[in-house]
Write a protein that binds this DNA or RNA. Structure first.
Lengths: 121, 121
DNA sequence: ACGTAAATTCGCCATATGGCGAAATGGGGT
DNA sequence: ACCCCATTTCGCCATATGGCGAATTTACGT
């Protein structure tokens, strides 16, 4: 029950859900998620660690940057079922689609540039 | 997205989840849910109306009593997928099992008696 | 019509949650 | 060794949430 509630609570905030949907099939750096959601990095950090505690994402550190991705390999069944449900429910969602478009733009900017100046500049 | 979040928020409280699991395969009167959860009836009422808004339960009025049940017939897909996931995740949950046992006891008491004196008396 | 009683609605309180900015942390690069 | 800078942690604030009890609503049964 605890684990299940951790998952449902993690999924009950729109910014966390958007982040999770943005992580479909790719990993993203924190600064990219900040760019996508338009929130302070401290807020994003809190969101992502909540998702991590619910086993919905994995953290990978690469130098100064931290990347988040959906769980790879030995996935907790609780989390994988939740992600499957999430995807089925929101694959065609309007907001999610718009985010997907924005993500493609954000990905064109090299990480160094995106982080360093703090935006699209 | 709104609908999805309504569902995840509804599922992110343990008392609501317990109520939903208690409604597997049967309908229950509000007073029976009060008895199961050990909460004030006003609190249970609030919980149930939140579940109803998320389309996870239906309300049926019968005389002075109000019964809740899982959606019948033309079920919103959003809700039915959520309920399937819920059941798969928690069918073997320890708390849910204990509730199931208690429910069987509560069901032995006629509704008139359960409501009228306010408990097992 | 009137009383009774189940359920809901209404205040109210305590705690949880989501947000920011400032300070702390930790990995390069020079 | 030192600085830089992405990320996290720490305070702090505003709002949301879950809980209760009191008041209101609604529908039977006299």
């Amino acid at each position: 029950m605890r684990g299940f509630l951790a998952v449902t609570k993690a999924l009950s905030d729109s910014n966390r859900v958007r982040a999770l949907m943005a992580l479909r099939g790719r990993e993203l750096c924190v600064c990219q998620i900040v760019e996508l959601l338009g929130l302070a990095s401290s807020t994003v950090s809190k969101h992502m660690s909540l998702l991590e505690q619910a086993r919905l994402v994995e953290r990978r550190k690469n130098g100064r940057w931290v990347y988040y991705r959906r769980p790879q390999g030995k996935v907790h069944k609780e989390a994988s079922e939740a992600l499957r449900w999430l995807d089925e429910s929101l694959a065609r969602d309007r907001d999610v689609r718009e985010d997907a478009k924005r993500i493609r733009e954000v990905l064109k900017i090299p990480v160094e540039e995106l982080c360093s100046v703090g935006g699209g500049k």
